[in-house]
């Protein structure tokens, strides 16, 4: 064995930014995350040219998956044109040669912050969610070693207690984003801060979901056809946000998750949160040949 046999020829950058050993580590952990759905797997979380907490976890998963034939969509709170989303999408494309898109139907990898697209994702698509806080027990148990033991014991009583206290105090469950959900009947995960509206989209879905927290150095996954059940009491059904009757002021679509915009003199206006769905609806109304895929919610009702 010589030194040259242990090294590679010099090159200015690694393909896809991450070096080969970082990718191998992520691959090993991603396979384990698939094998134990909803269980948080620790990983090293390398430096990427972006501050921790701005989607570095999702970015590392995407950079591991990406190849020149990939087509990447990146969304931030439903929008493709936010600074964070646009920068991440351009970075991925620059270091990998992958295509960029705004269209959920055209994407092979969808990296997202805080939303799941409204159009149903196919069996060949991968959703990569950026997770700020992967530990659902953080609010009830600050010690991560004890939280790990609670996951090992499937001891989620304190989470149920939190939800119960919300009902007692406020009359309803106040948990908005990151609703704790039982995956495969064993591990409770936080589905990243997606609204309650989006949690049913992960249940028995056709696509594969990775959830990765770069700052917290943990990733977990929801494989296709896996049960994702929000924690609810049998006499208090799970409720999504009451957006079924709202209409987008720009595109006119209704029955989807909306952004609420305060208007002068009080009151609110609403715009569809999945911005490209709104754009496609406007283009379709203008007669352009645009395809809007089947959506998870139809007439404001979830129907998978």
């Amino acid at each position: 064995m010589s030194l040259s046999s242990l090294t590679k020829p010099w090159s200015a950058t690694s393909y896809g930014f991450l070096d080969a050993s970082a990718k191998r580590e992520l691959r090993r952990k991603m396979l384990k995350a698939i094998a134990v759905p909803g269980c948080q797997m620790p990983y090293a979380s390398r430096e990427v040219p972006m501050a921790r907490g701005w989607g570095t976890g999702g970015l590392q998963v995407t950079l591991t998956l990406v190849n020149p034939t990939s087509v990447v969509k990146v969304i931030d709170q439903g929008a493709d044109d936010g600074v964070n989303a646009a920068s991440i999408r351009r970075f991925i494309s620059r270091v990998s040669g992958a295509g960029e898109t705004w269209d959920t139907l055209a994407a092979s990898i969808v990296q997202s912050r805080h939303r799941v697209p409204e159009e149903v994702m196919r069996e060949d698509q991968i959703l990569v969610l950026q997770v700020p806080n992967p530990e659902p027990l953080r609010g009830v148990e600050p010690n991560i070693s004890i939280a790990r033991q609670m996951h090992a014991d499937a001891d989620y009583g304190k989470l149920w207690l939190t939800l119960y206290e919300q009902i007692v105090r406020k009359g309803r469950i106040m948990q908005g984003a990151g609703y704790p959900s039982m995956v495969n009947g064993r591990h409770v995960m936080t589905p990243s801060p997606i609204p309650r509206w989006d949690v049913p989209k992960l249940n028995m879905a056709k696509h594969l979901t990775f959830l990765s927290a770069g700052r917290e150095k943990r990733l977990f996954a929801v494989p296709p056809f896996t049960r994702v059940e929000p924690l609810v009491f049998s006499d208090r059904p799970y409720q999504v946000e009451h957006h079924a009757d709202l209409t987008c002021r720009r595109s006119g679509v209704s029955g989807y998750f909306m952004n609420e915009l305060p208007v002068d003199g009080g009151g609110s206006a609403f715009e569809v949160s999945d911005s490209n769905l709104g754009i496609k609806a406007i283009q379709q109304a203008e007669g352009a040949p645009v395809e809007i895929g089947k959506t998870w919610y139809r007439n404001g009702e979830f129907s998978a």
């Binding site: 950058t13 393909y15 691959r27 998956l65 190849n67 594969l208």
Partner: peptide, 27 residues
Amino acid sequence: MLTVAPPDAIEMRANATFEALMWALSR
């Protein structure tokens, strides 16, 4: 302007192999 080095044969093989393994374990 950053120019992307095209993936070498090892990178392409590892990427395609992982994709197969990932979907194999997912389904």
